[in-house]
Design a protein around this nucleic acid. Structure first.
Length: 282
DNA sequence: AACTGTCCCTGCAAGC
DNA sequence: TGCTTGCAGGGACAGT
């Protein structure tokens, strides 16, 4: 499940391999992945444009084009962006193919692959963001891409009476954190996922701030998490290594490796699973 | 404001 | 073995 660290890893790949290259041809298979506009719109708006940058806000990949438009890709659950050689065998569920002219490297293709088709690809004009991609316009601050100091986290936490877990998952509050990293961050901060956000001590707020940055930074450094089922892989098809560092996610019933005393519990709320140690998270 | 539930979709696992 | 059912999960949205 691509979250901030996985999307950032993909962004770095795009920066290295896509920026400066021209898209000569666009193929769209399943129209569902371009549902925000249409097959025709994507083909028209991308063909013969050059990619000028690779940015990320939360889990959204944003690529400015020389046309003035922006290409947005969201991987959601099972999306992959892959760089491939021309003529290479395309995996099942390859829904969008961008043909890239020879640039500094040889000609190639960029594939958008997504079995569950929750992901999407869209091109929009920046001044139309409120209309075309309203949730992107309302995204909260990104802990890595934006300035994210302790005071900012404090203002977010103190203005919410919600539990910490759903607050961390709310993309309007903080952008980029998903289920895996929310659990790992709260564990690192030794905070119980059901603790009301506005009741934290100054010390706990500082712990949470440090844990958000530490966990996300470490995960990026290790190329994100690749789990058995979701098969996240980067642009070149490589998996990440952060899954080996998970202390609570996917460890239900195991002894807590942090305190050595608790047993990792898994609870469900709002259809999402939460993993935590009842002994060292309070 | 903050909850819960529903929907979208596929692959995998468990149960029969 | 082969079917059916259930579940996971990001995030928008509707309803309370």
């Amino acid at each position: 499940m691509p979250e901030l660290p996985e999307v950032e890893t993909v962004r770095r790949g795009l920066e290295q391999h896509l920026v400066g290259r021209r898209i000569s041809r666009v193929e769209v298979g399943r129209e569902r992945v371009v549902r925000r506009t249409s097959r025709e719109a994507l083909i028209h708006d991308l063909t013969n444009t050059e990619v000028e940058g690779a940015e990320r806000r939360g889990k959204y990949l944003l690529m400015p084009l020389d046309s003035g438009d922006r290409l947005m890709i969201h991987l959601r659950m099972s999306g992959q962006v892959l760089l491939a050689d021309v003529g290479a065998d395309r995996p099942p569920h390859t829904h969008v193919v961008l043909s890239l002219d020879e640039g500094t490297s040889s000609a190639g293709e960029l594939w958008f692959v997504d079995p569950r088709t929750f992901g999407e690809v869209v091109v929009f004009a920046p001044d139309r963001i409120e209309v075309e991609v309203p949730e992107l316009a309302r995204l909260g601050p990104d802990p890595i891409a934006d300035e994210f100091d302790r005071a900012l986290l404090r203002s977010i936490v103190r203005s919410s009476r919600r539990a910490l877990k759903p607050l961390l998952l709310d993309q309007h509050a903080i952008a980029g954190i998903g289920n895996i990293y929310a659990d790992e961050i709260l564990h690192a901060a030794r905070l119980h996922p059901e603790r009301p956000a506005n009741e934290l001590s100054t010390r706990s707020e500082a712990q949470l701030h440090t844990s958000i940055l530490d966990v996300l930074t470490d995960a990026i450094r290790m190329g994100g998490s690749t789990l058995g089922d979701a098969q996240y892989i980067d642009l070149m098809g490589a998996g990440g290594n952060y899954q080996d560092e998970h202390r609570v996610y996917g460890r239900e019933g195991e002894r807590c490796v942090t305190c050595g005393r608790g047993w990792i519990r898994r609870t469900t709320s709002g259809g999402r699973s939460t993993h935590f140690c009842p002994v060292c998270q309070r």
